[in-house]
């Protein structure tokens, strides 16, 4: 078998084998990028609703009956956990799957429901290597496979469109972009 044939074989077989892993790391990579940049939280879905308490409240007046009334108004009686006062003007009622924040002087309440974001939560679980154990080894194998796929990809085509032609220029551009951004953000 010539080295070019072997190269194509490596690229094709590893490409098939690690298709699923590339999708997992690609999608969760975008999610984590934006999580770090604080654009959104890929692991959680948060929904906030504003509700008005009839009247105003004072910390000293809040008792179990007040809590019951708030839970009834928000329809969260079944989900009640505990409450506490973050400060003199606010009451926080914890629920299974969220919380209610009450602004005591105005009586304005915010019901926040929090739930896990399907798919992304699972993908991030894998991307962050939370399972450890076997996943560490399989993802290491994938990373090694990705390096081999990249290197073998350089030599798939001969001639004008290959590494000695347009392919080479694109490869250099792909190396220079992260290098330039690294210089700008880290060293300048």
């Amino acid at each position: 078998m010539s080295w070019r044939k072997l190269n194509r074989w490596i690229h094709r077989e590893l490409g098939f084998l690690f298709f699923g892993m590339t999708i997992i790391y690609g999608i969760s990579g975008i999610a984590l990028n934006h999580s770090v940049a604080r654009h959104w939280n890929p692991g959680l879905i948060t929904k906030a609703t504003s509700i008005q308490y009839p009247g105003t409240l004072q910390k000293a007046d809040v008792d179990r009956a007040t809590i019951e009334k708030i839970l009834e108004l928000t329809g969260e009686k079944e989900n009640y956990k505990q409450y506490y006062f973050p400060n003199e003007d606010h009451l926080m009622i914890y629920l299974k799957g969220g919380h209610i924040t009450v602004d005591l002087p105005t009586g304005s309440m915010q019901l926040t429901k929090i739930r896990n974001r399907p798919v992304f939560q699972e993908l991030n679980y894998l991307h962050y290597n939370k399972p450890k154990k076997l996943w560490t080894w399989f993802s290491d194998l994938y990373a090694l496979g990705l390096v081999l796929i990249a290197i073998s990809g350089l030599f798939l085509i001969k001639g004008r469109k290959g590494i000695t032609g347009r392919g080479g220029i694109l490869t250099i551009i792909g190396i220079l972009i992260p290098l330039a951004l690294l210089i700008v953000y880290l060293w300048l």
Partner: peptide, 12 residues
């Protein structure tokens, strides 16, 4: 322990 879950909020 890898992380704390948001579900822990409000629990003792």
């Amino acid at each position: 322990i890898d992380e704390f879950k948001v579900e822990m909020e409000g629990s003792t």
